[in-house]
Design a protein around this nucleic acid. Structure first.
Lengths: 195, 195, 195, 195
DNA sequence: TATGAATGAGTATTCATTCAT
DNA sequence: CATGAATGAATACTCATTCAT
């Protein structure tokens, strides 16, 4: 009887290893050795489970994306009106708290910058941005019967703010009034819609 | 009789070499060889003019910052009212056009991500963000006699939007409605102020 | 199933590689390539086993020091009187014979000169010199009930002679009457003690 | 009227530049740039006055040797008896005082270690050692009518002590009782002669 | 003579990837 | 599956030497 496969588990460990290393050093400086150490595994094992370093990155991107989606869905459960859903969207993106979130955001910012260098990462990143934009735009439209193109613009700007806030949270922490982000962004958005 | 010094010129060439390489590959992947090639110089010459790679990066950051400031000041010349100045601020940041701007923004996004890895870059980056935030906040306050802390929040959000838009412009170009950024951001800001 | 560790063996090989290269070229000129070649290993492997070149040097210094101590202890086994111990000390230091000794001395002379450039090597070197001096001084005192400070002076001079002879043996071989060193030094020391 | 040649002066400056750099860093680490800086000259000028780095070293060796000889001759002026001359020899070698001496000794120790690596330096070094040995041996013989070969042995040992003391003075300063060297060595030598 | 820019080869070090066990 | 040793290419940086001015 062969021992049960643990590929899936090992792959998760490795992906999380990359996430934690990347959060502080970026992708280029995340050596296989360091990833292995962070994952508590032997270096040689990495390439048994992944073809190469890039593949781990891609899986990490997918993991982060999935996690973010889940955050939104969880908050959406109790939302019925469009306004509540918009609220849920922004809260899911910006009302971050624990250490896991912290690392997730750090990794995400690193991923965003890797999107500039790797076409495949760029595609994944673009997809999320595109989807989120469309989602938010349709929520906005539902909420206020404004023009579609106008709602799209506001949605893009909103997404940009979120990405920019992630960035600033990693580089200029002490400039951000603590916990201000979600509320301020919602204010901005809603006030631009009501007239 | 002695050969005339050309240090300043060479240093500029090298800095621009780094900028152009970084714009597409990031800092870690900007090899000295590549920088030299982009600058049209022999590799060995780089370290004759700069102590190390980091020093080139720092000078590049300073150059980009200076250039951005000049853009704002140029647009501010004709602005008298606070509203016009806010307008100038946003336009200077977002109404970008030619290839030089393109490269500048690309380099800036890369710099922002380097700020996460190098403390000295982080300091420079933080300083600009801080200064811009304060500047914008005081303009907003001048314009609407709202509370200082409220204006600060809006200013931060605005700066975040700008940084986020830079990011998106590099990673998800075709999602941005062309030329929409400045106007949409101004709308958002002003509509949040008037009530 | 895992490959058995051979770190200790490889490290020894590398250290001996450095010793043999240093013996002829000195530390600065002992390139990693040359060390690897002397050890029969791939260059990249050196840095798998050692953090950097300096670390190899430090281990080499420790090895040489240990070897020298063992030489003395081996000769001391049969020594009971102080005079015999002094004899053993000088013999251990100077009655050198085979090729291994030759290389050891060559490496030691190189190490001594590196002590001028690297603080950590200087400390190791100083420690041995200091310990040997104290050891010899106490032997001398045991032998002749002379003043402590006087014995210390003779001990230092004796150690200096030994180091100087090492030096000359590497640089001006054909000036040294073969095999004269130990006897002559003992004569000098004992004749200065008897009055 | 052509400007008067200053080759000799420049060469001296460069040689002293090397001496001062070597005293602290050794020959391999004495870069042409550093030598030029120490000499207060432009880097390019070095190779105008010297074919290559080695040539400067050779001239430095000659300079140091000459300086040492002069020290001995100066002290010999008032010496008439063999004992006084032996005294002068040892004093000239070991009764060092000012900063210039300090640098000279440091450079000399570095030179001695370079003798292991460069055949031409080895020759120069060997010559001095040989000559000094013969000189001292003949003085010893004049003083005590002992056998020539015996006197040679003592002379070699004496020279070795001196070289060893130079070495220790650079590497383990605080172990040497201050100012003890000359007297102790003279005691050792004379007591070994009188039986 | 003098200056300092330029070149190119050389060096330590890192690291993704492979492979023997 | 797992381990950790091994490889070789890539990279930042140094430096003697040359050369244009």
């Amino acid at each position: 009887m062969p021992r049960p496969s643990n590929k899936a588990i090992r792959r998760q460990e490795i992906i999380r290893g990359l996430m934690s290393v990347m959060a502080t050093t970026g992708y280029e400086n995340a050596s296989i050795q360091a990833i292995a150490k962070a994952a508590g595994l032997a270096p040689g094992l990495i390439h048994y489970h992944f073809k190469n370093k890039k593949e781990i990155l891609i899986e990490l991107v997918n993991l982060v994306i999935r996690t973010m989606e889940e955050r939104f869905l969880a908050r959406c459960k109790d939302a019925s009106s469009p306004a509540q859903k918009i609220d849920a969207f922004v809260e899911a993106a910006l009302a971050l708290g624990d250490d896991a979130d912290e690392e997730l955001v750090a990794a995400w910012v690193m991923i965003a910058s890797e999107a500039m260098r790797h076409e495949d990462i760029q595609k994944l990143y673009e997809n999320v941005i595109k989807q989120n934009t469309l989602l938010l735009a349709s929520l906005l439209q539902e909420y206020t019967q404004g023009s579609k193109s106008e709602m799209k613009k506001i949605a893009v700007m909103c997404i940009a703010s979120i990405e920019g806030l992630y960035q600033l949270s990693q580089t200029t922490k002490d400039i951000l009034p603590s916990g201000f982000a979600a509320d301020t962004l919602k204010n901005l958005v809603f006030s631009s819609l009501t007239p």
